[in-house]
Nucleic acid binder design. Structure first.
Length: 703
DNA sequence: AAAACTCCTCTTTTT
DNA sequence: GAGGAGTTTT
């Protein structure tokens, strides 16, 4: 009976996808078509029916969130402990392999992992040294990252490049960058994938070992894979070809960081005997939402066509509104959300407001705040990226690996100990001369009798002393090491209270984590947003909305220049991605979808006239409620115009009241005062009632 | 080492 | 128009 449960509540293509084995499989899973369900059930099916060991199924996802969900669901299906399984992100899986095998590539197995910020600071350092305009570091970092994820080595790049101008400089920086990483025994995120692929390529025996130990490979969000990830999958799957990838080319929105949609097309060529299954039944949205989004995405060329359908019915029409400017748009969004809430149609947590760029959240936040609507913004600086947290982590990293020059530079004068740029420059110079790490160089300087001022020598000695002492200790967990760091450095003394509290929080969160696990985790796992308050509207970019769903979705700023973003206007492949972004946004909605654009918007410092997004033209009008307001409409009640007797009435129009019998309703009208006061209340599902508050036991419900 | 000043940039982002 | 970073000033 358990085996039947595995295949229950599935439609035909889903069942087929789960049961297909024996040749490579590509599952084209439309938005909301139950792809996670397919992957998790397939995992369980392989274990229960095909008798594969859970440890022999290599399952890769793109984000930690997805990996955790898979583990959780598979754990439930198989009622087993998933700790030992190979379910994880590309990066964490590769990390796991490399910690065991990287010695074959000439790295130490306790290599350090550099995150973006470390990567950037290393690149800046190199630019400074090579006398290249430093402000370019961000662009250069992303170019290098894309080169790496496309399997182009510095040598290759220098060889194939034109050898002039910017490319030549980029090539030199890239070369130096890889060199410095190696010297620091550090890998960046791209290296984790790249070096695993190289390991398998250069060491066929090791490759064969892993091929043998994995009976099946499952890949989630396949449209987001880059070339190096694709290569890795090819290497791992070679021979057995027991691989199943799940993805949706229409939801590929990460080209800018190297994702290669063509992997879906090439898959057919590279994996002969490929079986393709389309999942087209949508379990998320109403037909109107599917019709609108489906028509918009249909205009993209070269897509694997899917026709999403649902048995949910039409639902509400999609609403498109044109507002005067971004304040009005925000006000419209806030009023509409309030209305949905007051009518009891949605909780605040049902609602998401999505936008193209983070900048847009400002106006929306102001609008929601004015209306007293609780919200949270998903974005930006995660806990681990705060300066004080990264400083403490840098100490731990340096203690774990004294070759880590990036961490050294970060903390050599933090907290301030009078070691300035000129001293650091001397150290850098000396280190280069001896091709030694910065830390070891300092250690030499302290010991030797060279021409360094004794006062400076003292300061350096105290730093060396701290690190060496920390290295000698043994620590049960990361928290102990951190406490020792704070103890020896007095780091907290220089911090404002809030920042100090952050550090204290960090320490208490790692009391049961070993130092090694902690370092892996901080690098590879962005911590989940801590505050997810009671019931609040979610604000986020279209990119971060991918993979989520909400009963009601607002998509704002649908204008030329915003969506599509003005930088994507030239390249047709960029424009296609903007369209997919719009598509991803719309398909997050389950029941209600509100689109809006404005006629004038202030963008950076200037105010611009805006055109509605070209994507709006593709929307079928019959699924849509079209509101083009030329005149700004004042929804809000101007308090000064309300007659005096209404002003003092018990209830404001729109406020929520609770009736002992009919439940919660929305106040439509108020009249009279005191004993004569009357209110008209709409109770959803019951109807409009006229009540006398002094008799009816009405209770005001605060929002 | 903090404060004041100028300059620059200004998608999207997970690992 | 604002926030970040680097530089100069105190």
């Amino acid at each position: 009976m358990a085996k039947d449960l595995l295949l229950e509540d599935l439609n035909e293509p889903q069942r087929e996808a789960i049961m297909h084995t024996g040749s490579p499989l590509l599952v084209l899973a439309g938005a909301g078509s139950g792809k996670t369900r397919v992957i998790t059930r397939k995992f369980a099916y392989l274990v229960k029916k095909k008798k594969l060991s859970p440890m022999s199924i290599f399952t890769v996802t793109f984000t930690n969130r997805a990996a955790e969900e898979m583990k959780h669901r598979i754990c439930g299906l198989l009622s087993m402990d998933v700790k030992q399984t190979w379910i994880g992100t590309f990066h964490s899986q590769c990390n796991k392999i490399l910690r065991r095998e990287i010695k074959h590539l000439g790295y130490k197995s306790d290599f350090t992992i550099y995150d973006d910020e470390d990567q950037c600071s290393l690149i800046r350092h190199i630019l400074k040294e090579l006398n290249i305009y430093e402000a370019l570091y961000k662009g250069i970092a992303s170019r290098i990252s894309i080169l790496k994820s496309s399997l182009i080595t510095p040598e290759n790049f220098l060889y194939q490049g034109d050898g002039f101008g910017f490319d030549e400089k980029l090539g030199r920086v890239y070369m130096r960058y890889q060199d410095e990483l190696k010297r620091s025994d550090a890998l960046d995120f791209d290296d984790l994938i790249l070096l695993t692929a190289r390991l398998f390529e250069e060491h066929p025996k090791i490759c064969a070992k892993y091929q043998r130990s994995f009976d099946y490979i499952l890949v989630d969000e396949f449209q987001d894979t880059n070339l190096s990830q694709y290569r890795l999958l090819q290497l791992m799957a070679a021979g057995q070809n027991n691989i199943c990838v799940v993805g949706d080319d229409d939801q590929s929105i990460y080209k800018f960081r190297g994702a290669e949609v063509n992997n879906i097309r090439n898959f057919e060529k590279d994996f002969p005997g490929l079986k393709i299954i389309k999942l087209e039944q949508n379990y998320r949205s109403t037909q109107n939402i599917l019709d609108v989004s489906g028509r918009v995405i249909a205009s993209n060329p070269n897509r694997k066509e899917k026709r999403l359908w649902t048995d949910k019915g039409c639902g509400d029409k999609v609403c498109y509104s044109m507002l005067g400017n971004e304040e009005e748009e925000a006000k419209f969004v806030a009023k509409t959300i309030k209305d949905l809430y007051l009518k009891g149609l949605h909780e605040y947590s049902d609602v998401a407001v999505l936008y193209r760029i983070n900048l847009q959240s400002r106006a929306i936040e102001d609008g929601l705040r004015a209306e007293g609507i609780p919200y949270h913004v998903l974005s930006g600086v995660s806990f681990y990226h705060r300066k004080e947290i990264k400083d403490v982590i840098a100490y731990i990293k340096l203690v774990a690996n004294t070759d880590d020059n990036v961490s050294f530079r970060r903390i050599i004068n933090s907290p301030p100990r009078g070691i300035g740029i000129s001293t650091l420059a001397k150290i850098e110079q000396e280190a280069k001369k001896n091709s030694s790490s910065l830390y070891n160089t300092v250690r030499q300087i302290v010991k030797s009798n060279n021409s360094v001022l004794s006062s400076i020598k003292e300061r350096l000695a105290s730093f060396v002393n701290i690190i060496d002492l920390l290295r000698q200790g043994s620590y049960k967990n990361a928290a102990e090491l951190m406490k020792a760091v704070l103890n020896k450095t007095n780091y907290l003394d220089h911090l404002e209270e809030e920042r100090a509290q952050n550090v204290v929080d960090l320490i208490s969160s790692v009391e049961n984590v070993s130092v090694h696990n902690f370092l892996d985790r901080t690098a590879l796992v962005a911590v989940a947003e801590t505050d997810n308050p009671v019931s609040a509207v979610s604000l986020m970019t279209l990119h971060s909305a991918k993979g989520l769903e909400f009963p009601a979705v607002f998509l704002v700023g649908l204008e030329e220049g915003i969506l599509p973003y003005f930088k994507a206007l030239e390249e047709s492949s960029d424009m296609e991605e903007e369209r997919r972004l719009f598509y991803v946004g719309m398909t997050r909605a389950k029941e209600r979808l509100f689109l809006s654009s404005v006629m004038r918007r202030r963008f950076y410092s200037k105010v611009q006239d805006q055109e509605p997004s070209r994507f709006i033209k593709d929307i079928p009008r019959d699924c849509c409620q079209w509101i083009e307001k030329i005149q700004p409409v004042h929804h809000c009640v101007d308090k000064s115009k309300i007659p005096a007797d209404q002003k003092i009435s018990l209830f404001d129009i729109g406020c929520r009241v609770k009736h002992p019998f009919w439940g919660i309703g929305v106040v439509r009208e108020c009249s009279g005062i005191g004993e004569n006061a009357k209110v008209t209340v709409n109770f959803p599902g019951i109807g409009v009632k006229r009540l006398v508050p002094s008799i009816a036991n009405l209770e005001r419900v605060n929002i």
